[in-house]
Structures are given as structure tokens and as C-alpha cells.
Design a protein around this nucleic acid. Structure first.
Lengths: 344, 344
DNA sequence: AGTCTCTATGCAATTTTATGCAATAGGTGA
DNA sequence: TCACCTATTGCATAAAATTGCATAGAGACT
């Protein structure tokens, strides 16, 4: 047999028309059960698979969604934020559960990605993943909206950007972990992590943090906030800067696990013990967190729900159902690094 | 304007035929420069993009490659092997550099993925990523070969499987790290990591390890090999088993960084110091390795070259050029966890 | 018997682009 | 002037599937 079999080949063998084959293979009730089974049998024998391009062209939909991952161009491939990886896993699974394919693209920011996927009919919708704030990001999001492209952003709802977003409740996460430390008897707090509009996630965690302190009347003992991007290295540097002040806090809330590990590393270098001298908490619950020394108290984002919700929202948009911004609750994971004084 | 513009719309505006538009947009020398520029100008104004499905259908190729990631189904989404993630990054970049799209799919092993992509014309070729040894894996690889599907496997060349493979030189990696430890004065070695056909990568590292020991005449002092899958937890458990023997080695070569971190953790629990009592090495150079306590000596696989080479091989196959198995050299990264006795 | 209904199937149009072949125009050389 | 060449453009078709509409045949009811 030359080349792949087409629906015409099957039609010929089954002695029916090609349209009947098409219907039979999509389990249409319009075709008699016996005929349908016979056709499906022949299709199996010939190893027939429907041609996605022809099918998509006719149907004017691709059953594919595109995942665009925006990363700080300064970080190299191996430095991809572990949280995004985890969410990528759950997105692929949610897609395949819905019988959608997934196109993945790491964007560098110069491309005209805004038209690259839906306009070409490569994908029916876009998932935008990454920490916001890029060159032209806002302008391109606006253009997506104008073009009626289906898209969902990962991140907090933000009036600056149009369209729907799905995000983790970073405010609540920052709040509960701080509340936990307060309950453990800590009183003098510092926060390590950028807390400005360039990193809205970190900012929200910081705001949850200060909200908890304010509620507990601990703002008068507040030690300060120290910038750090999401790496171990940045955490170490920030901690060194923090300790340079002579005095030190008794609890450090970090905006990510990697930062926390860096902070603990720096503490070890200056002879401070965790949690005896300073309790330290992270954020993300990366695989290593449970096995760090000490085991790291952290906040876990529900990546499974995140991926599933993102896909769900995109599918709803494709089907012209309405959606709205969604916040996914985060959960506190208590380990040794936040143990109270009394336990030492 | 209703719907997206097609090449007919442009033809109409430009007062030429649709075929001329098609040629002009692909920069064909068959069309007059002035006409071509006029057409491209109009296309830009109308925000026209070629319909990928129609184009693919006509051309009978998709300019897409599919990445199939096989993972142990027992691990959850967040446990994806960091090495694969890193390679994923370089694959996406290599693809976009070659103007190919990338479909990503995490396979559970029951699907008939072997026909799911190229037979449907969703992709022109397949990259198979993951540790081998799955249900029906061999049978399906054979079927791919029979169907003349273009594919490249990640992993060592293995006569059991047909087709081309690209892999990291794990034998050499295991060899150089062991050689390094020997040069540091270590003599009594243990290996932690599975070393059987279920984990061919680990096995090759182990074989490089024993080769170095044999060459240095240290096999009579060989302490033993202890099974562990690639997690921190498995490393801890293996180490506990190892220490249960009463005696201990002075160097432990681990099959992955996470295992090594688990081993160091277990050492700390039984009061053994690294590197003073036992030198420990990892494999993969994950982001945390440089900041572990002590900083971990490890072997780095060149993921950038890996992704690029995988893509290159697939593209060659698609263009009917010949390719052959490729081994990518690994490089040793020396840090504190392998310091010699004398330094203590 | 005539008509009506219902089911199953076939026919033909449609989706958009790429491309082999034909055609046209304008110029050149004999 | 005719034949021919070259450069450009248009025509028609093919790629493989989906789907609205038409219709054949069977059975039912009047």
C-alpha cells in the first residue's frame, strides 16, 4: 500500500461513501450500528488515522491550545522556575484529558507571539504563563483582547490587563504563614523578596505578610523588607545585607523556597541557627524543601488545580461560555524551620 | 470585516490572483518585486496570517515536532526530573530557531502514542524523552520503525531498540567523577543508585564508576552498590541501609544530585561529616547543588547541546539525511563535597 | 394504492493554501 | 514579420476531511 490510508480507501473497502466513513468514525448516530462497526474494523486494520490538518481546516478549530511561557531572559534553561514546571505538568494532563493537544513555546519577548497562534489556526486559545512585566507586554495583551483571541493569564487579577486571569492566592498564602509564625511566638519579622510591581506575586505575599503583622499589632517591631529575586543566590545576598544591620529578627518570611534556602545558608555562615535563633519560611514547596536542614516550613500552591483551572477557563472561552477571574487558595505546610523557641 | 482575512481577500485588494499572493508571501522570485512588496504591504494592513492547517494540508508536512515525555506514573507532576525540564527548555529554543512548533505530551503508557502524532500529520517527527523500560515500550518503538516514523530517542544507544538515539555519556560521567575522588585520596567506594536495566542511565554511570575503580586497583576495597530511585527520599533510605552495615566507605558516588542530598542528610543524622568522613558526589548539577551544605561536587550534562542535537537529528531525518547515534560528553563540576581529607 | 415518515446513506460544497501548467505580453534576433 | 524566449501572472486542481441537503427504501397508516 502506498502512503497512508485515507477515508476514501476505507470507503472503497467497506462499499460505502466517504462521508459515511467520516460519520462512522466520529460515532455519529446517523450511521447504522452494524455499518459503523464494520467501518471501524476496517479502519483499524488499515491503521487509519484521521488527518488532523484536513479535519482542522474543515472544522475551523484545531483542538489545540498553546502555552506561552515567559521567563526572564537572563535566566538560563535550567533555571526555569520549578513552579512553572509543575504547572506545566498539570496543564498537559488536563489538556489530554480534554482531548486537546498542547503547543509549548518559550517566548523571547520580541516576537509577535500575539498573532502567532490563534490567527494562524495553530491553536484555539492561549495560556500565558510567567511573571508579568515585559517589554510591550501590556500592549500585546491589549491587542489580544481586541482581536478576540481566547486567552487566560496566569497571575493575579489586575485592572491594568484585560482578559481573565487565574492565579494563586498569594495574599492569603503570605498571611497564613505569617499568622502561623506569630502563633509560634515570633514577634520581630523580616521579609525577603522583591515587593514591587515588577513581581506582583511576591508583592501580594508581602502584603499578606504585613496584613498579618498589623492585625497582631507587631508592626512596631517590624524589621524590614529586603529585595531578592527567586534564587538561592539572591536569598544569600539579601540575608547578608540583613545581618549587616547588626541586630537580627526572630522570623524571616521568604518569598520563595530557594530564597529561604539561601537565607538559611547565610545564617549558617554567620553562626545563626534555624529555627532556634530565627524561624525561616519559604514558598512553593519544591521537592527539596522537605529534606532541607532544617525541613522547611512553606506554602504550597495547588498546581494541579492551577493547571486544571487554566485549561478549564480556556475551554469555556472557546465554547463561548463566560468565565471570571479565579483565585486558588494556597495551603500551609508546617515543618521544622518554624518551630517555636520552646522546642529547642 | 467578518472573520479573518484569507489570501483571496488580499488577492482581491491587490488586483491579482490568489496564487500570486501565495507566491509573494513566500518570497518567491517568480513574482515581480513591486507586486510582491505591494502584496506584503496589504497583508500586513489586513493582519493576514497564513492558515497553518490549509498550508500543512497542501504541503503534507506540519513543521511541528512532538515531544513525548515518559515518566514513571508513580511520581506526581511536581516531581518531574529536573534534567528533563532543562532539556525541554533547550528543545523549545532549538525548535523555534528552526521555525518548527513543538507539541508536548506527557504520556501515560497505555495510549497508542506511536500512531498519535505522525500518522495524523500533527507532527513530522517525534522526540522520545524519558527513562526507558515501560510497558510495551519495546514493541511500540519497533512499530514506529516499521511505520517509517521519524523519531529520536533520548538515551544510550541500545541494540534492543531500533532507531537513532542521542544520549549523555553516562559511562564517562561516572568514570570522571570517580577518577576525581581517587585523585583526592579516597579509596573505599560505595555507589548509591539503581544499577540495572530498568535504569540504563544509572547503570552506565555505575559501570563508569567500577571501571575507574578497577583501573586504580581499588575493587578489593569496594564497599557496595545500594539501590535508590532518583529522589532525596530514596537516597536517605539507601544511606540508612548502607550505614546499618556498621562500617562505612570514605566516598559515595550517587547516581543523581537528589540522591546525594538524601545521603548527606542521612549522614548528618548519624553524625557523619561530609566531606571530612565521607566524600559524596551527585549527578545533574541541579540549581540547588551549588548551595547545598556542603556544596555538591557533581557531573553536569550538557542539556543545551542535548536539546539542540535531538532537534538537529529529527530535522535531518525529516529531510531524509542520514544520522547516527550521538553521545554527548558530560563535565565534572568540583565543589566542596569531594574535598580531600587533608583539607579538614 | 397512495402518502407519509423515518432512517440510513450518498452527493456535493466547503475549508484555505500551494503548485504544475498554460497563457500573455513584451522584447529580441533572424 | 515571424518565431521564440523570458518574465510574470492566472487557472485549475489537489490536499483530506466535515456537513447541509437530497434521496432511496422500508414500513405504517388511511
Amino acid at each position: 500500500m502506498k502512503g497512508k490510508a485515507t477515508s476514501f480507501d476505507i470507503a472503497h473497502r467497506a462499499g460505502v461513501s466517504q462521508s459515511t466513513v467520516s460519520r462512522a468514525l466520529s460515532n455519529s448516530p446517523l450511521v447504522n450500528r452494524e455499518t459503523r462497526e464494520r467501518i471501524q474494523q476496517i479502519a483499524k486494520e488499515l491503521n487509519y488515522k484521521v488527518d488532523k490538518n484536513a479535519s482542522n481546516l474543515r472544522k475551523q478549530r484545531s483542538s489545540t491550545i498553546a502555552l506561552l511561557l515567559f521567563e526572564d531572559p537572563s535566566t538560563d534553561d535550567s533555571q526555569i522556575n520549578p513552579f512553572f514546571i509543575s504547572i506545566l505538568g498539570s496543564i498537559t494532563k488536563a489538556c489530554s484529558a480534554a482531548n486537546y493537544d498542547l503547543l509549548v513555546s518559550f517566548q523571547n519577548l520580541t516576537d509577535d507571539w500575539h498573532a502567532e497562534f490563534e490567527d494562524t489556526h495553530k491553536a484555539d486559545g492561549l495560556i500565558l504563563l510567567g511573571y508579568g512585566d515585559y517589554l510591550d507586554y501590556e500592549a500585546k495583551i491589549n491587542q489580544l483582547q481586541e482581536q478576540d483571541t481566547h486567552f487566560v493569564r496566569w497571575g493575579a487579577a489586575d485592572p491594568k490587563y484585560p482578559g481573565i486571569s487565574v492565579g494563586s492566592n498569594n495574599f492569603q498564602g503570605g498571611y497564613v504563614v505569617t499568622e502561623h509564625l506569630i502563633a509560634q511566638g515570633r514577634t520581630r519579622f523580616a521579609f525577603v523578596g522583591e515587593a514591587d510591581s515588577h513581581a506582583p506575586e511576591f508583592l501580594a505575599r508581602f502584603q499578606g505578610f504585613t496584613h498579618a503583622l498589623t492585625q497582631a499589632n507587631l508592626m512596631d517591631q517590624y524589621f524590614g523588607q529586603f529585595d531578592a529575586i527567586f534564587t538561592v543566590e539572591a536569598g544569600m545576598e539579601a540575608a547578608i545585607e540583613l545581618f549587616a544591620e547588626g541586630d537580627h529578627p526572630d522570623a524571616i518570611v521568604c518569598a520563595s523556597d530557594l530564597i529561604a534556602l539561601g537565607v538559611i545558608q547565610a545564617m549558617r555562615q554567620v553562626g545563626l541557627r534555624c529555627p532556634e535563633d530565627i524561624a525561616v519560611t519559604g514558598y512553593d514547596n519544591i521537592p527539596i524543601a522537605a529534606f532541607a536542614e532544617p525541613a522547611l516550613t512553606t506554602v504550597q500552591q495547588d498546581t494541579k488545580a492551577a493547571g486544571g483551572t487554566l485549561v478549564e477557563h480556556i475551554l469555556k472561552q472557546i465554547n463561548n461560555e463566560s468565565t471570571s477571574d479565579t483565585l486558588i487558595p494556597a495551603s500551609l505546610i508546617i515543618r521544622d524551620s518554624s518551630k517555636p523557641y520552646s522546642k529547642t
